[in-house]
């Protein structure tokens, strides 16, 4: 085993994708819902719970996928139960898009 193989990367790729997705989502939510205190964006809540109406939710999903450079149908987001799952799904999409790039 070489030294490089023994040393794990500082951040696993899947964790980096989650961090990137989480940050992008928080930035987009802040832009669409400027009056919302950032600490209210917690993973166990749905966007609806933050006061995002249906148009806000469209703008948030369309905005975050554009910011992350993802080409994912909006319909794939219809059943996502909460913000944590949304971050996870976005991270999976990021990983997939980078593997195929």
């Amino acid at each position: 085993m070489t030294a490089a193989e023994r040393t794990p990367p500082a951040t696993p790729p899947e964790h980096a994708a989650r961090t990137e997705a989480d940050r992008a989502l928080r930035e987009v939510i802040a832009a669409i819902l400027p009056a919302l205190p950032p600490q209210e964006v917690v993973h166990t809540r749905h966007l609806k719970d933050l006061g995002a109406d249906s148009v806000d939710r469209v703008e948030i999903i369309a905005g975050v996928t554009a910011r992350l450079g993802l080409d994912v149908p909006m319909g794939r987001f219809s059943d996502i139960p909460d913000i944590g799952a949304l971050v996870g799904f976005l991270a999976d999409c990021l990983d997939r898009s980078r593997r195929t790039a």
Binding site: R57, V58, M74, S78
Partner: peptide, 9 residues
């Protein structure tokens, strides 16, 4: 959500 997202897709 399902309806608006389907419209946009």
């Amino acid at each position: 959500d399902r309806s608006l997202f389907a419209y946009l897709d």
